[in-house]
Design a protein around this nucleic acid. Sequence first.
RNA 1: GCGGACGUGGUGGAAUGGUAGACACCGGAGACUUAAAAUCUCCUGGCCUUAUGGCCGUGCGGGUUCGAGUCCCGCCGUCCGCACCA
Length: 897
Amino acid sequence: MPRYIAPEIEARWQKAWDEAGIFQAKRTGGKPKYYVLEMFPYPSGKLHMGHVRNYTMGDVIARYKLSTGHNVLHPMGFDAFGMPAENAAMASGGHPKDWTYSNIDTMVEQMKPLGLSLDWSRMFATCDPEYYGQQQALFLDFLEKGLVYRKNAVVNWDPIDMTVLANEQVENGRGWRSGALVERRELTQWFFKISDFSEELLSALDTLENWPAKVRLMQENWIGKSRGLQFSFERTGGGAPIEVYTTRPDTLMGASFVGISPDHPIAKALEAESEEVAAFVAECRKGGTTEEAIETAEKLGYDTGIRVKHPLKPDWELPVWIANFILMDYGTGAIFACPAHDQRDLDFCRKYDLPVTNAFFALEEDAPVATEALVPPKSEKVRWVDHFAGLTEATGEDAINATVDFAEKAGWGQGVTKYRLRDWGLSRQRYWGCPIPVVHCEDCGVVPEKKENLPIALPYDEGGKPIDFSVPGNPLDRHPTWRDCACPSCGKPAQRETDTMDTFVDSSWYFARFTAPRAETPTDMAEAEYWMNVDQYIGGIEHAILHLLYSRFFARAMHICGHLPEKSKEPFDALFTQGMVTHAIYKTRELVERTDSNTGEKSTVIKDKFHYPDDVVQLSYNGIDVVALKSTFEEHGMSVDVDNERRAIHALVYQNPGLAVEVVPSAKMSKSKNNVVDPLHIISSFGADTARWFVLSDSPPERDVEWTASGAEAAHKHLNRVWNLCDRIGEMDRNAEGEGDEELLREMHKCIRDVTLGIDSFGFNAAIAKLYAFTGTLSKSKASYKVQRQAVMTLAQLMSPMTPHLAEDIWNHQGGEGLCATAPWPVADDAMLVEDTVTLPIQINGKRRGEIEVAKDLDKAEVEKLALAHEAVQKALNGSAPKKVIVVPGRIVNVVA
RNA sequence: GCGGACGUGGUGGAAUGGUAGACACCGGAGACUUAAAAUCUCCUGGCCUUAUGGCCGUGCGGGUUCGAGUCCCGCCGUCCGCACCA
């Protein structure tokens, strides 16, 4: 009997699929199309289990759709620009381009053995000039339509590396690489006008029925729509009024001061006049704009000396303060503070000794606010103190509406809607990104590059010399010749923009490019019309906001510029966010001697020591689990392979807790924790099918799955059993009569139904459970050869989306026609799903007490009669009549005694 | 602080309001074997019971229902997202 040797059969079938070209997306007539896409990877050069799970899920869908008669588009590419390539160049020399392309080669080599049904002919990387050149064309189109603009913006500036940092690159107020204190700096930057689409991006979320509710909610919160009142404070000493925005206009009678952002025009004017203000504003700008920096920052204020009049009581004067917690790019950059009903305003007022006045009280309470602001839910009724709109008792919500109406009628304010979503700053002072295709001309200003000059390619070297990435700053900026060019407008010598685009730009339209990856324009409308939208998009929840929101914006912008059809304004019809692959962490503790770098003092500290899964062994006897180090066996001259010696170590470790290994289950795989499982290792020892089967089998796809060695082995054993089963059936007597043909066929049709339903609904783990069960049924069956052969071939087909190589091999072994991968998906025969008889559980008062076997279509009255005659029911009723009998046909009988 | 999700055996998890624990891991017993590995068979939520059977059981407390893991309300816990957003 031949053995199941996965690497052998896997290579064979991959070659067969490749030669048949069955995964190349074609627009053949008469078939519906299906576009399945997994979020493309960053080419780190190392495939990990998370990739395997992500791509396997997409592959299950793609292969299933292929066999249900679709033209399938299932492409793959690389999100290849970005900092890691430059960091690698800085750390160990070399060139980002070489590093990236070599990693791409490596990753393709690592992905191919997985047997994914990808159309490799469409592959591209975002760092290909053919791709980013088209991205530059898009940028120019956007510019023409007013979807991109330049403005000054406050950014995180790393003074050592001399670059802008993304918020997530700032750690504790310091640059993540240089360790320098990050400054807030104002720079001229390019922005996409995503905020123009705030309302549309928000309201269209309702149409995304096949997106996880969680993602839609996260986007909704991110866009952050709010309704409030905008109005002005007149200054007592003249000058432009100060415009403020508030969502709680109803608290105006509790106003204490007017606050403006350090970046507000008034603050800037003062800054120019006064050194004291300049110093204060500089202090405010120190420290990052990150969450962490903000949270720990103390409230700072500066009294400008300016006074304004309360809009309702002209003799009530309020001071104007500059406050560090007010953001320039939200609302108007100025607020009125109501400390009684806002905690940060209260903190500020207590610090600077400003008045605190309640605008309202809780219904049963009249103590004025002391150290905690009174902020009841907006739906709760409160009691107002002398409210100008005539309110006595009302909810916050009603009060806000009444106040807005009042202000609008009186003419001093206006109800407005604001969004938290800000425009998307795309400029990066980096080398390894898509150059922004504009030219700075002394005479003409900022001029878009001509499309025929695209791509504006990155220079590989500096006039024959390698670019030095170890020098801080942007290599493009200091390149001797690259910047020089002719002004596209007047032809005079001019200089190129040296900023490159945020890498999120690259991934905001790649899905559209896949429909025509070699087109001379960003897209080919006929192809886009056919293949778009992405029917199923699969990726990590970490992209719930930025990538997906940016892509939704890009799709709209591309539609406006004629690069995508109307229907693609929402480019992803269905989204699935898959969980991570985790692995237990094994750790012990050890004492480590440490020398303080400042004082030179020595001390002993306890440190975690992490062990590789291969270095530990789980021992479990009589329900007591113990994890021991293999080295413990060696130290005692014992062997892991001998049962008695395993027991001995089990007892030893149990009695000496110091020898025990602590297990932290379900932790994210991480190099530093020594708990990474390398897919390549699994594939070479067990085969890709085992890895694919396992990552789908144990947990629902949206949840994390924990990789366990025993689980992986079990998956492999199962595939082995299926292989042996196929072999056994192949050796059966062709004419043998059997028993239970009909039962086996019924089970087979049930399995077809359940697995199909499972795949359709992303219930891969449940589908696999059904396949396990059916394999068990088949292996015990004594049915005829003909029926067993049909059953095993159907089993192969049902498994083929998950374990395509094994399925193909079984198909071939049983003499199946053509390739299993392209054979039509089996269809469950309804007639075979209907059971003649059915077992009905009988409940008495909702508790199961027995069961009866009845004909499937027996009418209710008959079923009731049979149920009442049941022994347990008779006993429970004890002669009296039942209060009620519920018969759910085909389901259950419940007798209320 | 705001918003959301989740909570089922030793473990991962099944279950259109209708027999809770499918399927798998771990564990136990047995077969085969000189022995081990591999493979195969059976058992495996808890308690009581020889068996039959009975009682309890889906984080906790209430509610709706003939019937609740599932729906509603209130707690507790875990995880995630957002956050000086006026």
